[in-house]
């Protein structure tokens, strides 16, 4: 993957790269604030769904109290970000998307201050385009300048379809750097890593007892109607019974819902996260311990982030770090 661009200084800002590309295309009319692919508001390609799952514990109708006092158990936090810039209207209406993905782990020192683990963030920049249909001249020169070109192989004629494909590819690239970092952690460290998002798709870490995944979004609800009902019934600090989550091409992991905060009255999932741990060593006691550790991360709060009810401060700190460390 490209981390230097020949004609461009390594680590050049996204805007600098975008201008460089605009130059290649001979386009002097460059928008004052270039748009990101995310800003087009393209529809989610994944439909919302409730899927069944095999219970790992006795199915409960409501929330299960997590015994004991919340206590910190995580040593580090992993998160990733992605960014994109759209280069509008090529000769055939095929947009190019320049994307950056990055991930970092911030470890908690003994004095409770976070520091970046493993020498910094992993940052990847690529140019996303359907190679067969894009402006070959530009792609050729971009490649020559050292830019990594990813073929999204998009087929639809609509430019939005091209953008959607690019976004999917960027999303996958982000998952890849997260997985890379999580794998490194599990290989080198013995302490527990808090992963923002699931661990099922991370490869090795999905079966490691050193990583816990915490999922904030609930486009797919696992465990069927029973788990969902139980989840909605939970009070803050309670969890649901655990179940096995299996997905296409993913490892199977043990999972359960946990309510960090009372709902806000509008979003039924407000304050609820879904936890993923390796299924190999699953016990109810482990579900309780992991739940206690997660609950302990409710303070300090991640405000002013709007996702503060489901996002610990440690993850916000990783995001802030990545925002500061990755040039825009």
């Amino acid at each position: 993957m490209g981390e230097s661009y020949g004609g461009l200084p390594p680590g050049a800002s996204m805007e600098a790269v975008a201008r460089f590309l605009a130059g290649l295309r001979g386009s002097s009319a460059w928008p004052a604030s270039p748009a990101s692919a995310e800003s087009f508001g393209l529809p989610e390609r994944r439909p919302a769904a409730v899927v069944d799952a095999d219970p790992l514990e006795e199915v409960a109708e409501g929330g299960l109290a997590v015994p004991g006092v919340p206590e910190p158990g995580f040593a580090a936090f992993l998160d990733g970000i992605q960014r994109s810039v759209v280069l509008p209207g090529g000769p055939h209406g095929v947009p190019l998307v320049y994307g950056t993905v990055a991930a970092a782990i911030r470890r908690r020192r003994d004095d409770r201050v976070l520091e970046t683990w493993g020498g910094g963030a992993i940052v990847r920049h690529s140019l996303y385009a359907p190679v067969a249909r894009a402006d070959r001249g530009v792609l050729g020169q971009a490649g020559a300048a050292g830019l990594d070109v990813v073929d999204t192989a998009a087929e639809g004629a609509h430019p939005h379809e091209v953008l959607s494909a690019a976004l999917d590819a960027i999303h996958r690239a982000r998952g890849a750097v997260e997985a890379e970092l999580a794998t490194r952690w599990c290989a080198r460290e013995t302490a527990l890593l808090y992963v923002d998002g699931g661990i099922a798709g991370l490869g090795e870490p999905a079966s490691s007892d050193r990583a816990v995944g915490v999922v904030k979004s609930h486009r797919t609800v696992y465990g069927g109607q029973a788990a969902m009902n139980a989840a909605f019934a939970m009070a803050a600090g309670q969890r649901t019974h655990a179940f096995t989550v299996e997905g296409r091409g993913r490892a199977s992991v043990a999972s359960w819902y946990l309510r960090l905060h009372a709902g806000d009255g509008t979003d039924p999932f407000g304050g609820i996260v879904r936890v993923e741990v390796a299924s190999g060593a699953f016990t109810s006691e482990r579900a309780d311990s992991v739940s206690r550790w997660i609950l302990a991360e409710r303070s300090p709060v991640a405000l002013p982030d709007p996702r503060w009810r489901v996002m610990p401060y440690g993850i916000r700190a990783v995001e802030e770090y990545l925002r500061a460390a990755v040039p825009r």
């Binding site: 409770r112 303070s299 401060y313 700190a317």
Partner: peptide, 17 residues
Amino acid sequence: GADGSPERAMRVPTRRT
């Protein structure tokens, strides 16, 4: 974040940047 308890605010697992 500390539920109104200064004591809890002192015991948070992560110190703010």
